[in-house]
Amino acid sequence: MNTSLRNTARTLGAGLRALLVLSVICGVLYPLSVTGVAQALFSGKANGSEISDASGRTVGSSLIGQTYDLPKRSPDEAAKPDLRWFQPRPSNGLGSNGVNLRYSLILSGATNRSADNAELITWVTEAKAAVVADNSTPSYKVRPEEVPADAVTSSGSGLDPNISPAYAKLQINRVAERNGLPVRQVAELVAEHTEGRTLGFMGEPRVNVLELNTALKDVRKG
């Protein structure tokens, strides 16, 4: 019994020493060297791909989606989209940029509602009606069947920086009208900011909303 106890203690000791040595290698040396290389070669990307507008003010990360809402007059007021800007996908889940929780950090997450969930059915139905109403102008009527799926569903992270080209196209007439710009000019802007599939087959075509709105802001000023 005594020897087996001593054996166990010896094996546990070896385990602890192995863990400590491997922690130094995998938990200190490895991440520090990768960080060193990353900061030296790709510091912009390693620090979050921040982008600025024409005046040089940082407007966020090209990778993290934002909301483009009107300022709230009271904290209890429901957020209303600022229709001068291209709108991102809904985010009804945990993830949304600017939630003020314990540390007012960006939190990511999905709704996790199932396809037969009553709440999700309501959200999607209401979002569809809103997309139709918001984007119809006197000269341009949006039909419900034209609304793409990404315009009415929340993404996995809740921070999706992109919308589909179809959803961007749907917003062109409204954005042009609200900003007093010619439709053709806004359409060109969208075309410039539409990214195809990587190498022609990876992922889906998409439009980066923050980059598009930043470019739109510059056009408005100019």
């Binding site: 996790n112 396809a115 569809k128 999706d160 990876m202």
Partner: peptide, 26 residues
């Protein structure tokens, strides 16, 4: 095929999926 009431109304199984990956990549 996106069966399920909410996905049918939305017109695609994009709930909880990112635009850049799409349905195939997800």
């Amino acid at each position: 095929a996106h069966h399920g009431p909410a996905l049918q109304i939305a017109g695609g199984a994009m709930e909880g999926k990112e635009t850049r990956f799409g349905i195939g990549g997800s």
